[in-house]
Structures are given as structure tokens and as C-alpha cells.
Design a protein around this nucleic acid. Structure first.
Length: 878
DNA sequence: GGGCACACGC
DNA sequence: GACGTACGTGTGCCCG
């Protein structure tokens, strides 16, 4: 590994951070802005540079050897503000927690320590990075050393290489010293030569190279005044250069070997961050445990490689693990199986198992109970081998998700680690990640898989108990577990796609995009990449001079809401918006979908992630079939390509009307809201009447639009800021709307207050069917984190209960289709709607039973309402 | 390979 | 007063 040394000018960065940030302080009133900024910078450096060695240098005392040369060196400096001084002890603690060596040296400045260490490191072949807020340090720049100087703020850094210095000043890094010698430095009180500034200094150095050469050839200098000054302040120039020269041979008693950087002390760092109130940073720091766990030595385990499948080992209950490595399991191979039960622990190779009738019979036997990880995945892959997994009694993946949805589950090891079981490696470590991923030979693979089954055996009871104490057993056994089987069916079934239709739409789009492109180029007067926000920004805001409305971190914002505001200013804007719209359709929906169509069956098989969202909703990937366009007619046509898989069948779609607001009415028990739903009123109109205190026939379309946005905000838990953005009104006006909404529905207001109080007291909120979401940040002193947690507390029971209800409806629906003996198949779920394909003769029945089942999935204080439609394609089911 | 800007759905 | 404002997925660009 290449060696990289990072040297930081501690005092300088602390000063920069102090003045760049507002005077933040923690709850005890200790100022923290310099430490905060310093930490931000350290995290950035660690992430970007990944140094092998590191040192932070500090100035030691007031006087240095430079004061012997010039007693007024650094004279006239403002005293360090006490608000900054009080932060230095924390800065030292911070570095100790990061386990980054720090160093100061009597009589020398931080610069000299850095100059000395960088020279030593260069000689030993290190790559060196220096960070400071002081441009003087750029003189250290060389082939091996680059110098980063903070520009403004704290993490915006200008990098000085010799090339950059040449470009910027036309000088070499060494000449930076000469420049300082001539022009002086106000902040260090280095006098230089009066009347010589940066421009003159550079001009002189380009001609005479160094101060010494210049002073020997003063008579060749053009300009009488300049000559006089140079002659008069000759000595002062030499002294100034000397003062500005960073020492590269200070008596530093540190060897590079002593300042290796490995990792930070997480516990100390967390404790310190907590003390300082750095909430946001607590989430930012990586877990060094992971790295440690990677190298942890696993204890040997006892297991057998199964050579022949016999019934004796296939007893129940069994902890049964099926290994499939690919994310997309629809076309993936099974790598092997492991089994743990009272007969012992076993590895079974895929070829052995998949060719064994005994294995198949066991896997399909409902009465043979299996405890698994990710039943849906196991089920789908086994189906490709003609095996229908049955008798799954416990799915660790789902149990873990229900216990705490905020924990990201990568693989079985991530769950094991969370519950203190460490005898299994993560897949990233075992198989490698990215391009390095590979499957080892069976001998090595076997123990990894057996360890996973062992984890199942160790955690089943624990999770079971946790679910029980959370009152989630019903949610687990009667909702999510059965649902996973239904989802497996839906995924395996797939959705048929009319490829010809997609191809034809693609051809048409191609032509229109080409036209738009040509038109945009001609309006811009040049060609460029319209898909590049950066290039587009230059064209719009520099070349065409349109007003800059919003900026992003990296440049001009060219988002749709910005462009819409510019639409009247230039005709190119409308073209660009249209280009974007069609481009999105082409790349994501035409090309993207064509890529994932099974060429043999013309079907698309999505994967529903059942254990990801914080609210209990499903998500869909590979491809995402939950975001197929509908809002704009052009995009909606994509749905014409989604067709039934049997000829003559139809697509039948049913959706809940206003399910979230109905759930809100129920949970809050607000009479007005309940009444409105009972009477079948248009809820946005009703809200407009209440909020604007008008009669039904006085509600204008604008009033309804505003009311709709407020309802939307309630459903999704957006802030006054979010509402103000969507309605293009001020934050204050948005806040007013929300206040008036809550006055209109007083029980809703009570609910909002109660739920936040409850969340604070219990640490979590729950849904109708006891789904749980923890909200630790609700007690945060950080206003944003706290506000966010409060909105989440209000919103999750609403959105999560709606998710519970449709999941319940899916289960009831599957059951009903079976008992009615129907061929109709459920294909997709899109949060509040279910999409089926059905033979025409079943339509009349579906019209009755689909709404009936969905509307009666649960009983609320308000009726649930379901609308449905059907047609030859998904497009027509509207 | 990863971060960013953007856009689609609910 | 601020570290940033519903969630989740996918695409292309652009950097290293």
C-alpha cells in the first residue's frame, strides 16, 4: 500500500473554523464552533485521503526563534478570543479520540514542524498532504507534496500543487518565499519592501527569480521609485524572506514510524460528540468495529458435509438456510444449503439437494417446519428447480425488520452482530465486494453457510420473545409471513410486457428527442450535453445570462421548479423541460424496462423489498414497478405496454380512495372528518370549506388546490417549509395554513400533540397492527432532528397503518381468490392499489369481491372506499 | 465505484 | 440560530 502522510496546521485550522462558523455552543454553554469545524474537516480528510500516517502540529508558545531575528514578528496580532481559547482542550481531546498524534515544539511554529516532517516523509517516498488556512504553507508544495488551503468556510479547500502555483502566480513554490520577502505579510507583521505588493513582487521574480538575485541587480530594475525602495529596504527584504521561510530541519523528535494512523477510538469519540452536542456527527462516523470484526478469528464449528441425502437428517424443526448471492434472485443460482437440527449441523451441496426426491419431498412438506432467513428469496429460487418450499414457520429477516425497521439488514451477519452473535462473517467480507466478489470452493463455502444456519438457531427464540413483548406476534405470523409467500407468487408470476409497443414508443421518442435536441442547440448557439446540469448551467446562466434562482452545492440549480420560473425569459427553457421529460421516459422507462424483460417469456419480474421502509410500506426494485408514470399523459402511455399474460385477459386495478386521511380520521376520532367521509364528501373541498370558512359552492379551484396540498402535507408529514415549496408561498403562509387546518379539525390537533408526547415518553410510535418505529431523535436538542422526529411521529401511524391495511387486504384477497376458485392473479401492489390480471369471465365477480375484500380488510370508524377499473392494458385500467 | 442532480411514483 | 427539511428507486454525469 502506498504510504500517505497528512499534516495539519492545527492552530490555523482552528482559527479558520472559529471565524467561519457561527458561535455554536453545547448545552453547558461551552463554545464548540471551532471544534465542530475542525471535526468536519478531519472527517472529510480521513474519507478523501485515507492517510496511513497523520500528525497535527500546533504552535508552542508566544515566542519563537523568529523573534530573535525580528522582535516584532507577529506583533500587533489580536489576542486569541476567549471563546476560542476555551475550545483548545476539547480540540486535544478530539485528536486523542481520533487517535491522531499531535505535536508542538518549544521555540518553533507549527509551520516548521510541518516543513520538517514533510521533507523527511518525501525522502522516504511518502505522498504528503498538508492542510492549513495559511497560504505561506504553499511553499512546501512539490512533486510529492500538495498543500490544501481553506478557501471560505472550512471544508472548501484550494489545492496547491507546483502546477497550480505556476498557473496562479507564474512562480515556483520556492518563489512564494521570495514573494513574501518582497511584499511582506500584514498578518505576521513581516514588513517586506514598502510599495511592493503582489503584482510587483511577481513581476520582479519572473525577471530576477530570487530576492538575492534581484538585490544584486537593482540597477536593472525599471522604475526609479521602485529602485530607491529596493535599495533602501534591502536588508528588510532579506530579513522578511528569512522570516517567511519555513524551516525544514527543525529539531523535531518524531519519526514517521511513530505517527501511523489506523482508526479512531469510537467510544471516546462518541462520548466526546455527545458532550459537545454534535448530534449530526454521531451518525456520520463509521463503525470501526466492523473493521475489527472483519479480522476476528472465528471459532471452529462442528458440522458434516452431507454426501448422500437421507431422511434421518431431514427432521423438524430444522434451521434451514439457502444461499443465493445475487441481489436479483430471479435468475440466480443456488450456491448451497445448510441445515441445523437435533441431528447436527450439515452442509448440503446444491447439486445433491436439487436432484434428490427426498429433499424435494421434505422441502415441500407443510408439516416439516423450517426456520429460515428470507423465505421469499428461498422460495423463488427453489421454484426454478421445481421445488415449492413449504412449512416455513419463522423468517429471521422479517422478524428482525419488525423488531426494529431502522436497522439496515445486509445479510444474516448484520442481524447476528446486532444481537451479539458474532460467529459469522458478513458476505462482503467472506465473498469480497464489488469486482472482487467471488465464490470460494465448497470446502470453504460450507462452514460459512453452516454458521448462518447456526445463527438462525441462536436467534429464533430471542426474536420471538422480542416480538412477543412488542405485541407483534400477530403482525409477524398472520400478516408479514403469509404476505411474503404472496409476494413470492407475484414476483415469480411477473408482469407481461408488450415489447413491440415499448420499442415503437422508443422509436417515436428518439425522433422527438432528436428534434428537441437540435432546437435546443440552435437556441443556445452551440452543442452541449443537455443532460449535464453543469454544462446546462453554463449555457443558461452564463451564455444566455438568465437570472440564477437557486444554487446547488456544486453550481447552478437547473431543476424543474427553477426552469419553470424561467420559462418566460427564454424559449429554450420549455424545450429543455420537454427534453428532460421525454429523456426520462426513454432512459428509465423504455430502455430501462426493455433491459429487464425476460426475452423468453416477455415478462418482468420485480423484487418487492418487504424489510426496508421505515413505515411498513413495500418497495420495488429491479425494476421499480411502483413508479411507472401516470401524472402526465405522455408518460402514462408507458402503461399501454403492461398487458395480461394470457390472451383475452384484462388488467384489473383497484385503489383505496384517501386511505391515509381515513386512517387519520379513525385514529384521531375527529367527528368532522369522520362525518365528511361518511357522507362521501370530496375531502379536499371539505378541507377548503373548513380552512377558508366558506360554503361548499364558494370553494374556488385555488382554495381546493391549497387544501389538497395541506392534506398532502398531513399525509406525508412535510414541514411548513415543504408545504411552502409545493405551493410556492412563504413559510409563514404555509404555517398559517397548517394552523388553520388544525383549528378546523380539533381532534386531529389533539392527536398530533398526543402522539408526539407518547413518542417522547415511549421512544417509539406504533400503527394499527402494532408495527413499530423508534424515534430516538425526538429528544434531540438539535431543532431539525427533533422537528423531523416529531413529524415522523405524527405521520408514521398514518402511513404505516395504511400499509398494514393494504397488506391485510392482499392476504384476504389471496384467500378469497382461492376459495372462490378464481384464476385471477395479483400482480402488483403500489402502496394504495392492487393490480390483477384476470380472465374476462371473472370480471363481474371481481367487481364485487375486490372492493368488498379491500374495504373490509379492517374495520375503522370511517368507511374505506375502493375504486376500480379494468381494460386490455394497465393504461386502460383507469 | 461513488456522489450528485434530477425525476418518477405514492 | 443551525448541521436541513416525506420516502424510495433509477438514470446520467463526472470525478478519481
Amino acid at each position: 500500500m502506498s504510504k500517505k502522510l497528512v499534516l495539519i496546521d492545527g492552530n490555523s485550522i482552528a482559527y479558520r473554523a472559529f471565524f467561519a462558523l457561527p458561535l455554536l455552543h453545547n448545552e453547558k454553554g461551552i463554545h464548540t464552533n471551532a471544534v465542530y469545524g475542525f471535526t468536519m474537516m478531519l472527517l472529510k480528510i480521513l474519507e478523501e485521503e485515507k492517510p496511513t500516517h497523520m500528525l497535527v502540529a500546533f504552535d508552542a508558545g508566544k515566542t519563537t526563534f523568529r523573534h530573535q531575528t525580528f522582535s516584532e514578528y507577529k506583533g500587533g496580532r489580536q489576542k486569541t478570543p476567549p471563546e476560542l481559547s476555551e475550545q483548545f482542550p476539547f480540540l486535544r481531546e478530539l485528536l486523542d479520540a481520533f487517535q491522531i498524534p499531535r505535536y508542538e515544539l518549544e521555540n518553533y511554529e507549527a509551520d516548521d514542524i510541518i516543513g520538517t516532517m514533510s521533507l523527511q516523509a518525501e525522502k522516504e517516498g511518502y505522498e504528503v498532504k498538508v492542510y492549513s488556512g495559511d497560504k505561506d504553507l504553499t511553499q512546501l508544495s512539490s512533486e510529492r507534496t500538495t498543500v490544501g488551503i481553506t478557501r471560505k468556510g472550512i471544508t472548501d479547500i484550494e489545492v496547491y500543487t507546483p502546477e497550480h502555483i505556476e498557473e496562479k502566480y507564474g512562480l515556483t513554490p520556492q518563489q512564494i518565499i521570495d514573494m513574501k520577502g518582497l511584499m511582506g505579510d500584514q498578518s505576521d507583521n513581516i514588513p517586506g519592501v514598502p510599495g511592493v505588493g503582489e503584482k510587483t513582487a511577481i513581476k520582479l521574480l519572473k525577471e530576477f527569480h530570487t530576492v538575492e538575485e534581484l538585490l544584486q541587480s537593482i540597477d536593472q530594475v525599471s522604475g526609479k521609485k521602485l529602485k530607491e525602495k529596493l535599495t533602501e529596504f534591502k536588508e528588510q527584504a532579506i530579513m522578511s524572506k528569512e522570516l517567511a521561510t519555513i524551516l525544514r530541519e527543525a529539531p523535531v523528535d518524531v519519526q514517521i514510524g511513530d505517527i501511523q494512523f489506523k482508526e479512531y477510538d469510537k467510544e471516546k469519540l462518541i462520548a466526546l460528540f455527545k458532550e459537545l452536542g454534535f448530534q449530526s456527527l454521531l451518525n456520520k462516523i463509521d463503525d470501526p468495529d466492523e473493521a475489527a470484526a472483519d479480522d476476528a478469528v472465528l471459532e471452529d464449528i462442528d458440522f458434516a458435509m452431507v454426501e448422500e441425502i437421507k431422511e434421518e437428517i431431514l427432521v423438524c424443526p430444522s434451521y434451514f438456510y439457502v444461499e443465493v448471492l445475487e441481489d436479483n434472485y430471479h435468475y440466480a443460482d443456488i450456491l448451497g444449503f445448510s441445515l441445523v437440527n437435533e441431528k447436527g449441523a450439515f452442509f448440503i451441496s446444491h447439486s445433491l439437494a436439487l436432484n434428490s426426491p427426498i429433499f424435494k419431498a421434505w422441502a415441500e412438506d407443510e408439516t416439516k417446519k423450517k426456520i429460515v432467513y428470507d423465505a421469499k428469496r428461498s422460495e423463488v429460487v427453489l421454484r426454478h428447480h421445481g421445488i415449492h418450499l413449504s412449512g416455513v414457520s419463522f423468517d429471521l429477516l422479517i422478524a428482525s425488520y419488525l423488531a426494529d425497521p431502522s436497522e439496515t439488514i445486509e445479510d444474516i451477519a448484520s442481524i447476528a452482530k446486532r444481537y451479539g452473535v458474532s460467529d459469522v462473517q458478513s458476505d462482503d467480507v467472506f465473498y469480497g465486494k464489488g469486482a472482487k466478489r467471488s465464490v470460494p470452493e465448497e470446502k470453504l463455502l460450507a462452514p460459512h453457510l453452516v454458521r448462518k444456519a447456526l445463527v438462525l438457531s441462536q436467534l429464533e427464540e430471542k426474536l420471538q420473545e422480542e416480538l412477543k413483548s412488542n405485541h407483534q406476534l400477530e403482525l409477524f405470523y398472520d400478516l408479514e409471513m403469509p404476505l411474503s409467500l404472496i409476494l413470492a407468487d407475484m414476483e415469480s408470476q411477473g408482469v407481461k410486457v408488450d415489447r413491440e409497443r415499448l420499442l415503437a414508443m422508443g422509436e417515436e421518442l428518439k425522433g422527438r428527442l432528436a428534434q428537441l435536441e437540435a432546437n435546443i442547440y440552435s437556441l443556445a448557439g452551440e452543442t452541449f450535453n443537455i443532460n449535464s446540469p453543469k454544462q446546462l448551467g453554463v449555457i443558461l446562466f452564463e451564455k444566455l445570462g438568465l437570472p440564477v434562482i437557486k444554487k446547488t452545492k456544486t453550481g447552478y440549480s437547473t431543476s424543474a421548479d427553477v426552469l419553470e420560473q424561467l420559462e418566460q425569459s427564454h424559449e429554450i427553457i420549455a424545450e429543455i423541460l420537454h427534453f428532460r421529460q421525454l429523456g426520462k421516459l426513454q432512459s428509465t422507462y423504455i430502455e430501462g424496462l426493455l433491459k429487464v424483460v425476460n426475452s423468453k417469456t416477455d415478462k418482468i419480474h420485480t423484487i418487492f423489498n418487504q424489510t426496508l421502509t421505515q413505515t411498513g410500506r413495500l418497495s420495488s426494485t429491479d425494476p421499480n414497478l411502483q413508479n411507472i408514470p401516470i401524472r402526465l399523459e405522455e408518460g402514462r402511455k408507458i402503461r399501454q405496454a403492461f398487458v395480461p399474460s394470457e390472451s383475452g385477459w384484462v388488467i384489473f386495478a383497484a385503489d383505496y380512495s384517501q386511505i391515509e386521511l381515513r386512517v387519520l380520521a379513525h385514529i384521531a376520532g375527529d367527528e368532522k372528518l369522520i362525518q365528511a367521509f361518511k357522507e362521501g364528501m370530496d375531502i379536499h373541498t371539505k378541507t377548503a370549506m373548513e380552512v377558508f370558512h366558506v360554503e361548499k359552492d364558494e370553494v374556488t379551484s385555488n382554495m381546493r388546490r391549497h387544501a389538497k396540498a395541506v392534506n398532502f402535507g398531513i399525509v406525508y408529514g412535510i414541514s411548513d417549509y415543504g408545504l411552502s415549496q409545493s405551493l410556492k408561498i412563504t413559510r409563514k403562509e404555509a404555517g398559517n395554513f397548517i394552523t388553520r387546518y388544525l383549528e378546523s379539525y380539533p381532534k386531529v390537533k389533539d392527536y398530533m400533540e398526543d402522539i408526539v408526547r407518547e413518542a417522547k415518553q415511549k421512544g417509539y410510535v406504533t400503527t394499527l397492527l402494532h408495527r413499530r418505529r423508534y424515534l430516538p431523535e425526538i429528544t434531540s436538542r438539535n431543532f431539525n432532528l427533533k422537528s423531523f422526529a416529531e413529524r415522523t411521529a405524527m405521520n408514521t401511524p398514518i402511513q404505516g397503518s395504511a400499509a398494514d391495511i393494504i397488506k391485510k387486504a392482499m392476504i384476504d384477497m389471496a384467500e378469497r381468490l382461492k376459495t372462490e376458485g378464481l384464476q385471477t392473479r395479483l400482480l402488483l401492489q403500489v402502496h394504495d392499489e392492487l393490480i390483477f390480471e384476470a380472465p374476462p369471465e371473472e370480471i363481474e365477480k371481481l367487481k364485487l369481491i375486490v372492493p368488498e375484500v379491500m374495504e373490509n380488510a379492517v374495520e375503522l370508524k370511517v368507511p374505506l372506499k375502493v375504486d376500480y377499473a379494468y381494460g386490455p392494458t394497465w393504461f386502460d385500467a383507469k
